[in-house]
Write a protein that binds this DNA or RNA. Structure first.
Length: 144
DNA sequence: GTTGTGACATCGC
DNA sequence: CGCGATGCCACAA
């Protein structure tokens, strides 16, 4: 196994992306009606792939969630995913802010600038749920 | 092969 | 507070 140190092992396994997306979908499916999660928060729950540098993963995970959402199945409540500004992100397609309407139907009230109160509406899965999915939120453990 | 852009976040001004 | 620039990986032209 004579592998030159100069060639970094940047294996991009397709199944990793599949697993990542599937994980995103599972988390979004768990968001209750009337609550939301940000792209970054969802990404923070998913551990760093072994093929990636943890720091690099931090930079891209939020975007990866966005990519996943672009191809999400019908049974995923995609409208409950918003950006860090508390606004609905414009979709590549077109048309009116359907996402905002759907959220309002769930009882969410938008403030000035079409922003919602993230501190009040952001939802987070329970530790039990995370553990059942094999997700361990290492960064959220309260220091004893 | 290269280039450009993305359903984001964060930092600086 | 808001706007602009930067970072990072994957995927489509």
């Amino acid at each position: 196994m004579t592998l030159p140190a100069s060639s970094r092992t940047r294996l991009t396994v397709p199944t990793d992306r599949q697993a990542f997306n599937q994980l995103v979908f599972d988390i979004v499916r768990a968001i209750p009606s009337g609550r939301v999660m940000t792209y970054g928060a969802i990404g923070a729950l998913i551990p760093t792939p072994e093929t990636l540098d943890p720091l690099a993963y931090r930079r891209v995970r939020a975007r990866w969630v966005g990519y996943a959402m672009a191809a999400c199945p019908e049974d995923v409540p995609w409208q409950r995913v918003v950006n860090a500004k508390g606004q609905v992100s414009p979709r590549p397609g077109h048309g009116p802010p359907v996402q905002k309407v759907l959220l309002e139907e769930e009882g969410i009230v938008f403030g000035r600038g079409d922003k919602l109160d993230l501190t009040a509406l952001t939802w987070s899965p329970s530790r039990n749920w995370l553990r059942s999915r094999g997700l361990i939120a290492e960064g959220h453990q309260s220091p004893s």
